[in-house]
Computed example of a mutant assay.
Amino acid sequence: MAGVTGRPKLQQRVFDAAEASLKRSKYLAPVELLAALGWLPDRRAELWRRGRLDALEQALEVDAGKAATAVEYLRSWAEVRQLQPVETRYLAATRDRRPLRFTLDGAEAAELAFRTHWVSPELSEKRLEQLVTRQNKAPDLVVISPEKDWACAECALKSAPGEFLFEEDGRSLCLSCADFGHLVFLPAGNAALSRRAKKESALSAVVMRFNRRRKRSERLGILVGAQALERAENQCLADEDLRARRRERDAERRASQDLVFQAAMAEQIRHLYPGCPADRAAAIAEHAGARGSGRVGRSAAGRALDEQAVRLAVVASVRHLDTPYDELLMSSVPREQARERIRDDIDRVLDGWAG
């Protein structure tokens, strides 16, 4: 099926996603493209990065052929735009830091296509160097805070939910058997302390927990050496006043950036829905784009003012404010049934706003 431009529909989707990524980050990566297309769920991608899957294609919600076609469309688009190809490494978050594979058959041409990032010529040499360094850096080791009871594969001791485990070669190990028993847990919340403690510690690991409500893994903190943590605490005490002043300036700058972003989002809403009242558009933008909210406005597509992301923000507002959706949920109506009941109400409001 061809799109409005005469291109195949998939090709147009790839080009649109590529434009948004280039505008946002000044570079394109095949793995990020697959995520933007909705084919690579975050949790499956995380399993792959932790070495739990043999190849990326096992994490995809489409067949390998379709993914390869999308990556080929990306290459052709990038070459037309005269972007610079940069080969990067993908290493697993395992002790041996083994290279991650993208395809089960491991064909070199396909592997190279997935490893290649496409960089804007506008990117400075220093920024390009930083990008390549970051992409080639081995990922952090990951320790899990599980939701259920579990038993160590080596010592067979049973542990309660929340007690940390390390997954290695498909086995769950307690911290002692994983040789992490001497490390101490530093909860998230103090970025400077965490950064310095990790830098000081010869061995460290990030502690993650899966949030079922948000359907994503969240960082709880890090495991570091006790002496490394002590040194980091002393460093933080030494420059606490300076960092406090920096935090104030950063907060002011972020607040200003949010206002600019929310104004741009409100303008995009009014562009897509000319009949939407200006104060309503501003309210939708403020709600959807609130920093730290996890709402669609804070997603990568939302920050790029992608039309679909903006439409989702508008639909969400109409659903909760202009229909009896919330009342239906409180009356124990299943979510999917409730959404089906108010679908016509949403369409009616959006059609009116669209003029």
Rank of each mutant, 00 (worst) to 15 (best):
A2K: 13
G3W: 03
G3P: 02
V4F: 07
V4N: 08
T5F: 15
T5R: 15
G6D: 10
G6H: 14
R7H: 11
R7I: 07
R7P: 00
R7M: 13
R7W: 14
K9I: 03
K9Y: 08
L10T: 08
Q11Y: 00
Q11P: 00
Q11D: 11
Q12S: 12
V14L: 04
F15Y: 15
F15V: 08
D16G: 03
D16K: 09
A18S: 15
E19S: 05
E19K: 06
A20W: 14
S21Q: 14
L22I: 12
R24G: 08
R24W: 06
S25P: 01
Y27N: 13
L28P: 00
L28T: 04
L28W: 04
L28E: 06
A29N: 12
A29Y: 11
A29I: 00
V31W: 07
V31C: 10
E32N: 04
E32Y: 01
L34I: 07
A35C: 02
A35R: 15
A36Q: 05
A36N: 06
A36R: 14
L37P: 00
L37I: 04
G38N: 06
G38L: 07
G38H: 02
W39D: 08
W39Q: 06
L40A: 04
L40Y: 11
P41T: 06
R43W: 08
R44K: 13
A45M: 13
E46H: 11
E46K: 10
E46C: 07
W48F: 01
R50F: 02
R50A: 03
R52I: 04
R52S: 11
R52N: 12
D54V: 00
L56K: 07
L56P: 06
E57R: 07
Q58V: 08
Q58P: 00
L60F: 08
V62A: 04
K66D: 02
K66I: 13
A67Q: 09
A67M: 09
A67S: 11
A68W: 15
A68T: 11
A68Q: 15
V71M: 10
V71L: 09
V71R: 11
E72R: 15
L74W: 05
L74K: 00
L74A: 05
R75I: 08
S76P: 00
S76A: 11
W77D: 03
W77E: 06
A78Y: 14
A78E: 14
V80C: 12
R81V: 05
Q82K: 13
Q82V: 07
Q82M: 08
L83R: 10
Q84T: 13
P85W: 01
V86C: 07
V86L: 12
E87P: 05
T88R: 13
R89V: 09
R89A: 13
R89S: 15
L91D: 02
L91A: 09
A92G: 06
A92M: 01
A92N: 01
A92R: 05
A93K: 04
D96G: 00
R97W: 02
R98E: 10
L100A: 03
R101D: 09
R101M: 10
F102C: 00
D105T: 05
G106R: 13
A110C: 09
A110R: 15
E111M: 04
E111G: 06
E111I: 03
E111K: 12
L112M: 08
A113H: 11
A113T: 09
R115C: 03
R115M: 02
T116L: 03
T116C: 04
H117L: 10
V119S: 11
V119A: 06
V119Y: 07
S120G: 02
P121S: 07
E122H: 07
E122S: 09
L123I: 05
L123V: 11
